[in-house]
Amino acid sequence: MTTTGQDAIGQDSIGQGAGGLPATGRLVDSHPLLARLTGQVVWNLAEEAGADDGECSLFMDHYAAWQGAALGVLERLRDAPGGGLRLVVDDEDRAGACPECVALHGVVLPGTHPDLAAWLPPFSIGCHCRAEYVEAAEMAVAGSNLPPTGLRPPAHRLCCPRRPLSLLLAQLQGHEE
């Protein structure tokens, strides 16, 4: 059944619900962390981390791209039922990632997972874990790779304990130079 909803940035779109995601409404509202992060909140967090106006603008650009990528994967999952999500921590990020996120690397969840929202990265601003969309055909052949029994998803919190905003700001400044 096709329903009218809104895409990752709140634009009207047509999509199909996929188990763990709502069939209608703003997709951002289904994410435990991103639903809480308005532009003003993100700007204030950067200021509290010591960023000046230029650094805040740089951080806002980074945040917008990061949020768009995360929500783009969820939008694709919602619009293509039968797919899933693969949790990934890239090789170059593993040393700086928290152990909870590293333990999730390679987990594949079906889009119909009943507790999908709890497992949705990013888990914080600066989180090294991300989700990739898994095509329905791959899910049909390979299936899920659920987390080991007893492994719980990290809590969704504002800032990563292993990558505070001051460190993230410094890393962004380093990429600009």
Rank of each mutant, 00 (worst) to 15 (best):
L77Y: 03
D61T: 12
D29P: 06
E132F: 02
Q173I: 10
L27C: 01
W119S: 04
E138R: 04
C129H: 01
V141T: 15
L116F: 02
G96W: 05
A137I: 09
L58K: 03
A18Q: 12
L116A: 02
L146P: 15
G82H: 00
E92H: 10
G25F: 08
G83F: 00
I9T: 10
R36L: 10
A23G: 14
L58N: 12
P122R: 00
M60V: 12
W66F: 14
G20Q: 06
Q67D: 11
W119M: 04
T38V: 04
G150K: 13
L74I: 08
S144T: 15
D115Q: 10
P161G: 10
A70M: 07
H128W: 05
S166G: 02
H62D: 14
P122I: 00
P99N: 07
D93H: 13
L116W: 04
A70V: 05
V108A: 06
L120N: 01
G174C: 03
P148W: 06
E92Q: 11
V107G: 03
L172I: 10
A95I: 03
G72Q: 07
M60T: 13
Q6A: 05
L167C: 03
D91E: 13
Q6P: 00
A95P: 02
A136E: 14
L71C: 07
A97S: 06
V73F: 03
E47M: 07
V42M: 01
H156R: 09
T149W: 13
P121S: 02
G174L: 09
G83A: 01
G54F: 07
D79F: 00
I14A: 10
R86H: 02
T3W: 07
P148K: 10
D52Q: 08
D93A: 10
P154R: 01
C56W: 00
R163L: 13
C101Q: 05
V28L: 04
A97P: 02
M60E: 12
V73M: 05
V102T: 03
R26I: 09
M139R: 01
V108N: 05
Y133T: 03
E177L: 03
R78L: 05
P122G: 00
G54L: 10
H62P: 02
V28N: 00
R162A: 13
D79P: 01
S30Q: 04
R162M: 14
G126D: 05
G83T: 01
R78S: 06
V141A: 14
V107C: 02
L146Y: 08
H113V: 01
A23R: 01
P22C: 07
V141D: 15
C101A: 08
A131E: 02
L165F: 09
Q16C: 08
P114L: 00
R26V: 10
M60Q: 13
A117W: 01
G106T: 02
